[in-house]
Design a protein around this nucleic acid. Structure first.
Length: 787
RNA sequence: UGGGGCGUCGUCAAGUGGUAAGACACGGGAUUUUGGUUCCCGCAUUCGCAGGUUCGAAUCCUGCCGCCCCAACCA
């Protein structure tokens, strides 16, 4: 034997990769600005169901962030609704998070532990006149809330005195009222365009026993009131949640500010939740599957729950790799379930020993094998490319079983397996040849009669003969019977929750197929939870619940990638398309308010203000501006005035372009009236650029300075040395340097990659500190390159 | 009186005025006693569409289009 192949060096893969996503950028910024001393995140599940793979994404994000920034991550149960929450869920959640490989240390918290503090804050809000007890019925409340397009109406109880509110709220707490009789609301704004700000409910009466606080409380805080307080009480720095809470952020901030929290305080950031195709992810739907018995429980191996994936045989490492792979962003997306499968294969490949198991047995008799011979063949647990040691003896016999699929009477083109008159190698065994097929009365093949070649023991080919196929097998006398559960995706369509009708209509009837398999004897001693690769078939795990030495039970985690049968792959509608189509159907006829565009807003402003309307007309007739430019410049008075001042005594057209394209981009939402310079100064800057005294990028640099400190453009140009460099000699030297520094790109340019021209121009302009005149640089670069 | 978000390859996803990263999937080849693994190679002249600004635009401006979220005493 030569030296064992060294393990592949992971260096290449690991060196650069610290995924930087928008949340990391926010944290980096906050840390740089010293807003927080430590990064503190939290994973805040409500204990009303089992965790699923979507939660795993959030767990990996929150705990991963804390770990990588040397901070902490809390596990906090958001248990503010006693009617839905149970201790069973509290326990399962903790065990799932731990199984995934994360540790909250001493930071285990419950929202219910803060009920008194939250109550006290509510009293403060009442005393400050910022909260009131409302006594409207549920229906009245809804009516008063208005709609997406109409403002709400204030409740008649909104003006109750502080004393009355205090009294009522205390009596609510004491249990003097029935469910729904009163609520505590924040006094914000019933006309807010954000529905959540229309005097949101803070507390409701729920006469129910809580799984932790028992009957100590009969009023419970609402999510929007409670969650931000939980974060603040725990000194969370970055409160990360999913996109559907974007609208809640305004209320999150309102509550914290109005109960008196000041910076540094927690801030909420939202990312896109995970969607996977061919499954459902909502707790409600998962609960339905469990309750109606479509699956065996929360830990059914077909469920996307952590418990289900664990039982299926997924590893924490695979799930974490998956979380890394899919990234963190704000785009609503649906991830291909193939990525999850890739991750578990990739992980199991190097940790699952190879064994042989026949799922659908076909009897084979080796008619020239001595009747009295009994031998054991040595079979490695690992393929040549997994750097691990270990093997087991596998008994061989005159009668063996092979996979029914590995024989074909009429083989398709490209068949590598057994056929009549053909040869195939038995893995670690012998080369055999089939010469006869035995069928029963129904025409079903019941046995193959083959000969074996004694010279090929161990699968060798001493005569150099080419044997294309190698198949797995088990010796009949020693074969062990095992239950094998073949799992497949739970649904037959990529977006089951979007399709028409009930999502359960799309359940895959073949998501579980149980077979009685014959496995090699070494599997008789398999331990529950142990992973194996059944060669050529897939990865399997000894079921952690049902597997026993007497009755082995294996779950299929995932099949092997199969480039032979794959060519029959179906058309595959992608999930996003399916969802979209279904949604379009659902939405038909439902009135939706349409958002006013900026153009409409500007038109409205002009309608309301005759001065603006006049300016709009004047800019077109007197200044000769296009309707578009005139429109943009007359959305508000300040901008119109700024432009008009700048245009005074200058050519209007370039001024309009500079204002709309350059200035607007820089000031964003800041009103131009706040600028530390006026239109006239801006006009002088444009003149400098027009005259070629400064280049365009140079002028933008000047504008940066003016935006910050004001000042006279010409002075800034002089002070910063921003005069345009137009001296060809100096420019040529810079060009030569840039070309010399990038020989590869010069070569690629000459091969036809002309897009690189911009690259070289950029290099030269950068080298000049932004003062080189781009037009000249471009000409020089091109001439030099083409020479 | 509506508001808040999002559109970059089949699927995820970098990119923040100067060469459209990477991964999965897919196609081809090499190695292979697993039709597995591994290794090479290929795979967006273009970033929802259209105008504009700029020497140069996925990135800036304008318009249009599409998608998601909000009217629970759920979270």
């Amino acid at each position: 034997m030569s030296t064992p192949t060294p393990p592949p060096t992971p260096a290449k893969k690991d060196e650069s990769r610290q995924a930087t996503h928008f949340i990391r950028q926010i944290i980096d910024r906050d840390l740089a600005e010293q807003r927080y001393d430590v990064v503190a995140t939290r994973f805040p599940p409500e204990p009303n169901g089992y965790l699923h793979i979507g939660h795993a994404k959030s767990i990996c994000l929150n705990f991963g962030l804390a770990e990588s920034y040397g901070g902490r991550c809390h596990l906090r149960f958001d248990d503010t609704n006693p009617t839905k929450e149970e201790q069973e869920y509290v326990d399962s959640i903790q065990s799932d998070v731990r199984w995934l490989g994360f540790d909250w240390g001493e930071h285990l918290y419950f929202a219910s532990d803060y009920f008194q503090q939250m109550y006290d804050f509510a009293v403060k809000l009442i005393k400050d006149g910022k909260a009131y007890v409302d006594s409207l019925s549920k229906e009245e409340l809804r009516e008063h809330r208005g709609s997406l397009t109409e403002p709400g109406r204030e409740s008649p109880y909104r003006s109750r005195s502080v004393e009355e509110n205090l009294d009522l709220f205390e009596r609510m707490r004491k249990g003097e009222f029935a469910d729904g009789e009163h609520v505590l609301r924040a006094k914000i704004d019933m006309a807010s365009p954000n529905m959540l700000m229309r005097d949101p409910l803070l507390y409701r009466i729920v006469n129910a026993s809580h799984h932790r606080t028992g009957d100590a409380w009969c009023i419970y805080p609402m999510y929007d009131y409670a969650h931000c307080l939980e974060d603040a009480i725990e000194h969370i720095s970055h409160s990360i949640c999913t996109l559907e809470f974007e609208n809640n952020r305004e209320l999150y901030d309102w509550v914290l500010e109005n109960v008196g929290y000041t910076e540094p305080r927690p801030h909420q950031h939202e990312f896109a939740r995970l969607n996977l195709d061919y499954t459902v992810m909502s707790k409600r739907k998962l609960l339905t599957l469990v309750k109606e018995g479509h699956v065996s429980g929360w830990d059914d191996p077909r469920m996307p729950t952590i418990a289900g994936l664990r039982r299926r045989g997924y590893t924490p490492e695979a799930i974490r790799a998956f979380a890394d792979m899919i990234g963190v962003a704000k785009t609503n997306s649906v991830v291909d379930i193939g990525k999850l499968e890739y991750c578990v294969r990739d992980d199991l490949n190097h940790r699952a020993p190879r064994v042989m198991a026949v799922l659908n047995p076909l009897k084979v008799t080796l008619t020239n094998y001595p009747l009295d011979l009994s031998e054991k063949l040595d079979a490695s647990y690992w393929p040549h490319d997994v750097p691990k040691e270990g093997s087991r003896p596998v008994p061989f016999a005159r009668t063996i079983y092979i996979e029914r699929d590995d024989f074909a009477e009429v083989p398709p083109k490209g068949w590598h397996r057994l056929t009549v008159g053909g040869e195939v190698r038995l893995r670690y065994g012998y080369v055999i040849r089939c010469y006869d097929v035995v069928k029963d009365a129904a025409g079903e093949i019941v046995e193959l009669r083959c000969s074996y070649d004694p010279a090929t023991r161990g699968g060798a080919s001493p005569d150099g003969r080419k044997v294309k196929g190698t198949i797995h097998w088990v010796a009949a006398p020693q074969a062990v019977r095992a239950e094998v559960r073949l799992y497949d995706r739970l649904f037959t369509v990529p977006a089951p929750d979007a399709a028409e009708g009930d999502f359960k209509d799309n359940l895959n009837p073949e998501s579980l197929v149980v077979v009685e398999a014959l496995v090699e004897p070494s599997l008789g001693s398999a331990q529950a939870g142990a992973h194996y690769q059944f060669e050529r078939q897939g990865y399997f795990v000894a079921d952690i619940v049902d597997h026993t030495p007497e009755r082995p039970v294996f779950n299929r985690v995932v099949t092997l990638k199969d480039s032979w049968t794959r060519k029959t792959a179906g058309p595959a509608v992608d999930a996003a398309t399916a969802r979209r189509e279904a949604k379009a159907k659902k939405d038909q006829g439902r009135p939706r308010p349409t958002k006013l565009s900026p153009a409409q807003l500007r038109a409205k402003a002009r309608e309301a203000d005759p001065q603006l309307a006049a300016a709009f007309a004047r800019f077109q007739t007197e200044h000769g501006l296009s309707e578009d430019d005139a429109d943009v410049l007359t959305g508000d008075t300040a901008l119109a005035a700024f432009y008009e001042a700048a245009a005074e005594g200058h050519a209007p057209e370039p001024v309009a372009k500079w204002v709309t394209n350059v200035l607007l981009a820089e000031v964003k939402d800041r009103p131009v009236s706040d600028l530390p310079f006026d239109g006239a100064a801006f006009a002088r800057l444009i003149e400098l650029a027009d005259a070629g005294t400064v280049s365009t990028p140079g002028a933008k640099a000047v504008l940066e300075v003016m935006l910050k400190d004001g000042g006279e453009p010409a002075d800034i140009v002089k002070a910063r040395g921003l005069e345009a460099v137009t001296d060809d000699g100096a420019l040529q030297r810079l060009v030569d340097d840039a070309l010399a520094a990038n020989p590869d790109n010069v070569a690629r340019y000459k091969e036809g990659k002309t897009a690189l021209l911009g690259f070289f121009v950029g290099q030269v302009i950068r080298a000049s500190g932004g003062s080189a005149d781009p037009t000249r640089v471009k000409a020089l670069v091109k001439a030099t390159l083409d020479a």
